[in-house]
């Protein structure tokens, strides 16, 4: 570890347009700096040594939280975990995202760290990702060439890898309104202490067919138990059109556990996946009935 950062050339664009122009010029030799809670430690640990650092945190265009019944939720990439966790609209309608953001790091890290930085870091245990997976979010990505929308499940390509190029920045996270009559939650256990990396994270969303009293469908996403957070599709299938009785919940939990590929503490993580899926589903089902 070094205690002083290696020299770099510094840019501080005030608009997205300026930012992407700089990135277009320097590509992979440049790094975007948002809250810095990941980039600065990575530089000190000499994992990366960018020649150009593009500080985007002053771009006021990217600090919005907008909500409309039609278009859903739009969060600027530079919104901090703290702001998301304390946003009344998010706490009301996207409670699991508020909960996930409130899990990230320490109070200081939550104030400094941004949601954009969290997803671009793209580690297997990043806490916002399982929530974004079940909310079926999409990322708005901008470069000098224009913008594109990347669905969340295509955004993460591997551990610490995303689908965006060095010329692009994420500008917005777009989250559709959850299906009516649905509830969702994020639950986790950490590795050792309360403020710690997530050992297993489970996000789940249950949609209800109120007429028939059954589950219309479920989305379940698992964090920290594979190269990247992912949807447990086989487990989800089991729930469709069913009542969530305890036997079924057991089966779903087991299916979810089987879909995981943890690297360390594998048996324990699988066991935790089963338990957390179970407790999350039980909690949600009890809310629906």
């Amino acid at each position: 570890m070094i205690t002083t950062l290696k020299s770099f050339q510094y840019f501080h664009p005030n608009t997205v347009e300026e930012a992407v122009q700089i990135l277009n010029k320097y590509g992979d030799r440049a790094k975007v700096l948002a809250g810095g809670t990941d980039l600065i430690p990575s530089m000190k640990r000499q994992k990366i040594a960018p020649q150009y650092v593009v500080y985007i945190n002053d771009i006021s265009q990217l600090k919005h939280i907008d909500f409309g019944a039609e278009e859903g939720l739009r969060i600027g990439a530079l919104v901090s975990h703290h702001s998301i966790a304390s946003s009344s609209i998010i706490r009301e309608k996207f409670q699991l995202l508020a909960k996930a953001c409130n899990k990230v790091g320490t109070p200081h890290v939550r104030r400094m760290g941004t949601i954009g930085g969290n997803i671009c870091m793209a580690g297997p245990s990043q806490d916002t990702i399982p929530a974004l997976l079940v909310l079926e979010a999409q990322m708005k990505v901008v470069s000098l060439q224009g913008e594109r929308i990347i669905p969340v499940d295509e955004f993460f390509t591997g551990p610490f890898q995303t689908a965006i190029t060095g010329e692009e920045i994420v500008t917005e996270i777009q989250i559709p309104c959850p299906p009516s009559d649905s509830v969702a939650d994020y639950q986790w256990v950490t590795k050792r202490t309360v403020v710690d990396e997530t050992l297993v994270g489970v996000a789940a969303l249950l949609g209800m067919d109120l007429d028939r009293g059954v589950c219309k469908g479920a989305r379940i996403a698992l964090g920290s138990v594979g190269p990247k957070p992912f949807r447990a599709r086989e487990a989800e299938e089991i729930i469709k059109g069913e009542k969530l009785e305890s036997k079924l919940i057991e089966a779903v939990a087991q299916a979810a556990a089987e879909e995981t590929k943890p690297r360390s503490r594998a048996d324990y993580r699988r066991r935790e996946v089963g338990l957390l899926v179970k407790s999350t589903l039980e909690h949600l089902w009890s809310q629906l009935r």
């Binding site: 510094y10 501080h12 700096l33 810095g36 600065i40 002053d58 109070p107 200081h108 104030r111 400094m112």
Partner: peptide, 13 residues
Amino acid sequence: NKPQLSCLTLAIT
């Protein structure tokens, strides 16, 4: 007025 970590903050920002 907000607590921030000065080790992660570039002075230039």
